[in-house]
Simulated assay, not measured.
Amino acid sequence: MGYTDQRFDVNLSILFTELPLLERPAAAAAAGFTAVELWWPWTGTPTPAREELDALRRALDEAGTRLVGLNFYAGRLPGPDRGAASVPGEESERFRANLDVAADFAASVGCKALNALYGNRVDGVDPAAQDELALRNLVAAARAAHRVGAVLLIEALNAPESPHYPLVSAPAAVEVADRVNEATGLGNATFLLDLYHLAMNGEDLFEVVEKYAARTGHVQIADMPGRGAPGTGSLPLEELLGRLRKAGYEGFVGLEYKAQDAAASFGWLPAGARAAG
C-alpha cells in the first residue's frame, strides 16, 4: 500500500506558479490531476470582488478540477506572514471579514476543507492574549466551515522556516483543535498533517501517523531536505502514506512541494494514480 492507494491533489499556490492563477487548474489537469488546493489566492484582500471569485470558479470548472482545500485569509503568503487568526488589529479584522467569503466560495466549488493558519507571535504583545484572540477567531472559523459542511484545519509549521509561529509540533496543533472543538461542540476542527513541516521539526513521523491519523483532516507532503518532490530527499513518504491509509485516513494528500518545472516533477507518481477517485 503506497502511492497508488492515495487521492492526490496539486497545490496551485506553490506549483505551476509561473502561470497566472486562472491558468493553473488547466495545467494541473493536463498533468493528469483532477483535484487541486490553494492558499488564499488574493493575498492583498480578504474580500475580493465577485468577478474574481467567479473567474476562479469558472477556471476550476472548465479544467474539470475540484478544489479540495483552501486557506482562509493568511496575510502575505508566500511572504513573511503565517496566518492572521492570532494577530491583533487589522489582520484579525481581515481574518474575520474573510470567513464567510472563503466558506461561501468553498461551498460553491464543493471544497470541504478550510485551513486557518494561526499567525506569528507579535513583538510586544502578550502571547496569552494572542492565544485568546486566536481561539475566538478559530471558533468563528469552525462555525463558518460547519455552515458549509467543511472541516477546519489547524496546521503545524516548522520552526527553522517559521521561527515566530507558535504551533511547531503535531501535539501543539492538535491541542488547539481540541480547544476549538471544546468551545464549539461541533467537532469539526481537525489536524492538517504536513509531513515535511513535522520532519523539519525533528518529529518521529511514524509515531505521529500512529497517534494522530484519526484526528487528521488533510495531509500535505514534500520531501526533505529541499522541499522537493518525493524522491528528491530522504523521507520515506510512500511508506508513511501507506501507514496513514492503513490507519483509516482516506482523505486527500496535497502535493505542496517546490519544483522549477511542475509538469516534469510528477514522474514519481504513475499517470494512472493522479486522477482523484
Results as ranks from 00 to 15, higher is better:
Met1His: 05
Met1Gln: 12
Val10Thr: 15
Asn11Ser: 11
Leu12Arg: 10
Ile14Leu: 09
Ile14Gly: 05
Ala26Val: 10
Ala29His: 04
Gly32Ser: 02
Phe33Gln: 09
Thr34Pro: 02
Thr43Glu: 09
Thr43Tyr: 07
Thr47Asp: 11
Arg50His: 03
Leu53Glu: 00
Asp54Leu: 09
Leu56Ser: 07
Leu56Ile: 08
Leu56Gly: 15
Arg57Ala: 15
Arg57Tyr: 02
Arg58Ala: 15
Arg58Tyr: 13
Ala59Asp: 10
Leu60Arg: 08
Ala63Asn: 00
Ala63Pro: 08
Leu67Asn: 09
Val68Asn: 15
Val68Trp: 10
Phe72Thr: 03
Arg76Phe: 00
Leu77Gln: 08
Gly79Asn: 08
Arg82Trp: 11
Gly83His: 09
Ser92Glu: 10
Arg94Asp: 08
Phe95Glu: 08
Ala97Asp: 03
Asp100Gln: 12
Val101Ser: 01
Ala102Leu: 00
Ala103Asp: 01
Ala107Val: 11
Ala107Glu: 13
Asn115Pro: 09
Ala116Pro: 00
Leu117Asn: 09
Tyr118Asp: 07
Asn120Leu: 04
Arg121Gln: 12
Val122Met: 14
Gln130Cys: 12
Gln130Val: 14
Leu133Ala: 10
Ala134His: 04
Leu135Arg: 04
Arg136Lys: 03
Asn137Val: 06
Val139Lys: 05
Ala142Cys: 11
Arg143Thr: 06
Ala144Ile: 06
His146Trp: 07
His146Asp: 03
Asn158Lys: 13
Glu161Phe: 12
Glu161Lys: 14
Glu161Arg: 10
Leu167Ala: 11
Ala172Leu: 02
Ala172Cys: 03
Val176Cys: 12
Val176Gln: 05
Ala177Tyr: 06
Gly187Tyr: 02
Ala189Cys: 02
Ala189Tyr: 01
Ala189Pro: 08
Thr190Ile: 04
Leu193Lys: 11
Asp194Tyr: 14
Leu195Lys: 11
Tyr196Cys: 10
Asn201Gln: 09
Gly202Thr: 04
Glu203Asp: 12
Tyr212His: 15
Ala214Tyr: 14
Arg215Thr: 00
Thr216Ile: 12
Gln220Tyr: 01
Ile221Cys: 11
Gly226Ala: 07
Gly228Pro: 09
Ala229Asp: 14
Ala229Arg: 09
Ala229Ile: 13
Ala229His: 10
Pro230Ser: 02
Gly231Cys: 13
Ser234Leu: 15
Ser234Met: 13
Pro236Glu: 13
Pro236Trp: 05
Glu238Gly: 10
Leu244Met: 15
Arg245Lys: 13
Lys246Ile: 13
Leu255Glu: 05
Ala259Asp: 04
Gln260Pro: 14
Ala263Thr: 11
Phe266Tyr: 04
Phe266Val: 05
Gly267His: 08
Ala271Lys: 04
Ala271Asn: 01
Gly272Ser: 04
Gly272Asn: 03
Ala275Cys: 06
